[in-house]
Simulated scan of single mutants.
Amino acid sequence: MEIRQLRYFIAVARELSFSAAARKIHIAQPALTRQIRSLEESVGVGLLERQARGVTLTPAGKVFLQDAERILSCLEEAKHNAIKTEKGMQGELRMGVTVMLLWVKELSGLLKEFRRRYPKVMLKLNTMLSGPQINALREGNMDLGILIFPPEGEEFGRLKIYQDHLVLVAPVCSEIASNPPQCLADIRDYDFVWFDRENSPNYYDRLIGYFNQCGFTPNIVETGNDSVTMLSVVASGVGCTIVPSSTINECPAGLTVIEVVDLKSLPLDLQLVWRQDCVNPMLDNMIKVAHELVCGDDYH
């Protein structure tokens, strides 16, 4: 049984005439007759009753017609789905992002515009720190990362979508709040809440290196896994911390945000990061949308 035989049978069943069907599908009538006979032999039952002025469907033929039309419809749907997937119009795009960066309007605007253009693509957002994001990208478990300070080298492609800076956060009742520091060296003797290096090695090393350049070696007394945890610890009255300003959408109760010149001098580029060897049309479309929003032109 061949797909073309199903098409031939449907044409004859709709026209109830071999000659009319042959003209409609542009095939010689004898050839059409042979194909229908071959189909009936394959099925094992008669599908058409031949009459002097045309044909009629047998009871088995009526049932077979319904199934044949459904099969061809499914084949057409499969074809369209394959084409849409090839063009990145549908499927699943796996993205990593730290929780608090989801508040950045440039990122939320990008996700909104992508959903508008590609409504059939499911964005699977995985909240994770930058270290696990890089590992997931390298292992092929994620298509796109959204992070600060990705590793250098040609392994990854990058596109900056937003520039941030760091801010100092302390309890409102602390000495730091009443006497704001002018530079990082001014807080070298204060208790500091930070995060473990294993969570975001590249980010950790870049910041600690910059702190040291500014004459500041943090006196770390407690650690948290992410900015939310670090802010919660500080809000409980333990020390101070430094976080990207974008993570302080509205300062939590009991905390104050302090701008320090040294921190404003270190730009934090929020970047889309992907593997250069990743072949994914949906990823290409996301990069294209981001490039248009950020740069105002097409991405090639």
Rank of each mutant, 00 (worst) to 15 (best):
E2F: 03
Y8C: 08
Y8D: 15
F9E: 13
I10F: 00
A13E: 10
R14N: 13
L16M: 11
S19T: 12
A21E: 09
K24R: 14
H26T: 02
T33S: 11
T33L: 11
R34H: 10
I36D: 11
I36V: 13
R37H: 04
G44S: 10
R53S: 10
R53N: 12
G54L: 14
T56M: 05
T56S: 11
T58H: 07
P59G: 06
A60M: 14
K62P: 00
F64A: 06
A68K: 06
E69F: 00
I71T: 09
C74Q: 11
K79P: 00
N81K: 14
E86D: 12
E86P: 00
Q90G: 02
G91I: 08
V99A: 11
V99R: 06
M100P: 00
L110Y: 02
R115W: 06
R115K: 15
R117E: 15
M122G: 00
M122E: 14
K124D: 12
L125V: 15
N126A: 12
N126K: 10
P132T: 14
I134C: 01
N135G: 00
R138I: 09
N141A: 12
M142C: 04
D143I: 02
I146L: 13
I148Q: 04
L159D: 03
Y162T: 01
Q163H: 01
Q163T: 13
V169C: 07
A170L: 09
C173S: 13
C173D: 15
S174Y: 03
E175S: 14
P180T: 02
C183V: 15
L184K: 03
D186L: 03
I187F: 09
D191F: 11
D196H: 04
N202S: 08
R206K: 11
I208E: 09
C214V: 04
G215W: 07
F216N: 01
P218I: 11
N219M: 11
E222P: 00
G224C: 06
N225L: 13
N225V: 13
V228M: 08
V228Y: 09
T229S: 13
S232L: 02
V233R: 14
V233L: 15
V238F: 06
G239N: 04
T241Q: 09
P244E: 13
P244L: 03
S245I: 15
T247F: 01
I248R: 00
E250R: 13
C251D: 01
I258H: 05
V260M: 07
D262E: 06
L263N: 03
P267E: 15
P267D: 14
D269M: 04
V273Y: 06
Q276S: 07
C278L: 06
V279M: 06
N280E: 14
M282R: 12
M282S: 11
L283I: 09
D284Q: 08
N285D: 06
I287F: 04
K288I: 00
V289E: 10
A290T: 03
A290K: 02
E292Q: 14
E292H: 05
L293D: 05
C295R: 12
G296K: 03
D298T: 12
H300R: 10
H300Q: 08
